[in-house]
C-alpha cells in the first residue's frame, strides 16, 4: 500500500519558489491500476518521482507498506527501487549499446549475474512477447518493442509497484494500446500496483482509478 501524508514539494529556482506538489494525501491499495492526469506543470511527474524514491519531498511523508521512504538512506532507497519498484519512461531510456537481454538485466548487473538472473530475463522477455528479440539492440527494434523491453526491465525483479511516466507518449496509437494492454495484463495477472502519469485520456479509460492534479494539488480522485 502506498500512502502519502501532506506530501509537499517546493523547488527553488534562484529566488523564486516553484510549487511541485502541495499537501497531497493519497492512499493507493495493492493491485490498483491508477492514472494520474493533469495539464503540464501540474505536478504529476513530481508526485511519481517522489513515490518512486527518485526525489525527496520538502515536507510530508510517503509510506510504502508503512515505511516512510523519505527518511531512507540513499543505499536503502536504491535497494527499494531495485527490488520493489519498476520504472517505465516516455523515452524508453534503454542503453543503446546493449542487447535487449542485457538491457533487461541491467538493474541486477552490479549484484552479479548468475543463471537464475538470465532465466528471469528470458522469462520476462517472453512474457512481453520479445522472446525472439533477445540479441537485438534497441536500434533494431520498433518504438513499441522498445517500450516492451523497458517494461521487461521494470519487471525483472518482480516488483510490487510499476511506475510509468507517459509510457505511450512516444508511440503510435496501435503500439500505445498494446503497451497499455500489456500493463493491464501484468496488473491483473500478478497483482502488481500500476501508476501511470499521462496526458492521454484513453489511458484513463482502461485504469480503474483516475487522479486529476492541478497546480500541484489533487482536484479529483475517482474510481471507475
Amino acid at each position: 500500500m502506498i500512502t502519502t501524508e501532506n506530501l509537499t514539494k517546493i523547488y527553488r529556482l534562484g529566488d523564486t519558489e516553484v510549487i511541485g506538489n502541495v499537501n497531497i494525501n493519497l492512499c493507493i491499495e495493492d493491485g490498483e491500476f491508477v492514472a494520474i492526469m493533469g495539464p503540464s506543470g501540474s505536478g504529476k511527474s513530481t508526485l511519481l518521482h517522489m513515490i518512486g524514491g527518485l526525489d525527496r519531498p520538502t515536507s510530508g511523508k510517503i509510506l510504502i507498506n508503512g515505511l516512510n521512504i523519505a527518511e531512507l538512506s540513499d543505499k536503502t532507497l536504491c535497494d527499494m527501487r531495485r527490488d520493489e519498484i519498476g520504472f517505465i519512461f516516455q523515452t524508453f531510456n534503454l542503453l543503446p549499446t546493449l542487447t535487449t537481454m542485457e538491457n533487461v538485466i541491467v538493474p541486477v548487473a552490479p549484484r552479479g549475474l548468475d543463471g537464475e538472473v538470465w532465466a528471469r530475463g528470458v522469462h520476462v522477455l517472453e512474457s512481453v512477447g520479445l522472446g525472439d528479440r533477445m540479441e537485438h539492440t534497441p536500434s533494431e527494434l520498433s518504438g513499441g518493442q522498445r517500450q516492451r523491453v523497458a517494461i521487461a526491465r521494470a519487471l525483472v525483479n518482480n516488483p510490487n509497484i510499476l511506475l510509468a511516466d507517459e509510457p505511450t507518449g512516444n508511440l503510435d496509437s496501435k503500439s500505445g494500446r498494446e503497451v497499455l494492454q500489456l500493463m493491464k495484463d501484468m496488473n491483473k495477472g500478478s497483482g502488481v500496483t500500476v501508476i501511470i502519469v499521462t496526458h492521454d485520456p484513453k489511458v484513463a479509460d482502461i485504469t480503474n482509478r483516475t487522479i486529476l492534479l492541478e497546480d500541484g494539488e489533487i482536484i479529483k480522485d475517482e474510481r471507475s
Binding site: 540513499d74 536504491c78 531510456n93
Partner: peptide, 19 residues
C-alpha cells in the same frame, strides 16, 4: 547523464556508478 540516471533509477548504488 541520462543513462547514468536510468541506472540509478533501477537501483544502482553510487558506488556501482563509480566502479
Amino acid at each position: 547523464t541520462k543513462e547514468i540516471g536510468v541506472l540509478r533509477a533501477t537501483g544502482w548504488y553510487k558506488s556501482d556508478i563509480l566502479k
